[in-house]
Design a protein around this nucleic acid. Structure first.
Lengths: 185, 185
DNA sequence: TAATTTGTTCAGTTTAATTTGAACAAATTG
DNA sequence: CAATTTGTTCAAATTAAACTGAACAAATTA
């Protein structure tokens, strides 16, 4: 029932009812601004808006929040909230918190840069690098074929150089990622 | 007329006609693989597929190519090719090349990691950091308001800490970007 | 154990991003 | 200078991504 949720997360606030859902505290200016900041931020990382909204609200909430309240305050569907929380958990950007006397799962934002960056690198960047690395193997063969069968020696050399270059890029990227983690750590 | 374009870019190749447009050389296995690699790559950076296709084909082409041929070989519209080349120029990922006796603009890929990374950082990342920085100013005010007017001292401190933390993230990011450029240089 | 609460899943819908293609302007050619 | 070539622009169509909501399962409560 809603009132129990409220007793947790509205602790010490005057409940002002402005049209919206019964007993739902609308987002205040600070919350709105933080959420917008994160929505923009995650867009840059190719992460959906709703995920940014959820993380943003958790980030600026002094108390952990349950799915219910994310749905009510952000006005997103239960489905979005559930999926969004899943990806945030998966990224290590959110942490489940036990709240006594309430069987819902509460969440709080992981607000340290290091684990956030590590999660993003591990979940989003490294898998891409891995598939890229596999492609490179095939690419070397194809370039070799082309270089052998092609009539033009120069062109063959060009293909070899290009593929080699891609290999260098991949190695650079693999060196760079741990460097970034260290810098942010 | 198409034959002139071909005389430039099909130099020394046997023209095999397989159904498609008259006189258009279909993408070979190497080209397809490289293009696919770049399409995946740019997706990660939030850049549209067609831009990845264009860059990929230019990257693996020993000769610079004109818009015409990108359209024909990639089977994309003139509009996409034009816009795609524009963003690639803007990113510094492509370079216009003069070809004697042909009034079309020819392009070749910029294939050095450093300028590519610099372009991406300057065009895509830094603008975001700047708008983020502006938001932070406003955010500090809002957090201060909230901290003052709010009844709870702890909560006020929490808000201050959160906003301060965002400031720290921004500074870290601003330090990190030049570091990345140096590493790739 | 029936009813309720909580959270997940996924087919269908909505929204946002990308691509197309036609109209246009500018440059070049004959 | 009329015709052609080259490239751009932008409204409309298409495609891809995200979101919704209803159905469901699992856990809890009465």
């Amino acid at each position: 029932m809603a009132s129990r949720a409220l007793s947790t997360s509205l602790r010490g606030r005057t409940r002002v009812d402005v049209g919206g859902e019964e007993g739902v505290v609308p987002l205040n200016a600070l919350e709105l601004e933080v959420i917008e900041l994160f929505v923009n931020g995650v867009k840059l990382l190719g992460i959906p808006k709703s995920v940014g909204e959820i993380y943003g609200l958790l980030f600026i909430s002094p108390e952990p929040l349950p799915l219910d309240e994310l749905v009510a305050r952000l006005k997103i569907s239960k489905g979005s909230a559930s999926q969004g929380l899943r990806s945030l958990r998966h990224l290590g950007a959110v942490r489940a918190v036990y709240v006594a006397g309430d069987r819902r799962d509460f969440y709080e934002a992981v607000a340290e840069l290091k684990p956030l960056a590590s999660g993003f690198i591990k979940e989003q960047l490294e898998p891409h690098l891995d598939t890229g690395g596999q492609r490179l193997v095939r690419l070397r063969e194809l370039a070799e074929d082309e270089a052998m069968q092609g009539s033009d020696r120069e062109v063959g050399e060009f293909y070899r150089d290009r593929v080699e270059r891609l290999g260098k890029w991949e190695r650079k990227a693999r060196q760079l990622l741990p460097l970034i983690r260290k810098f942010l750590g």
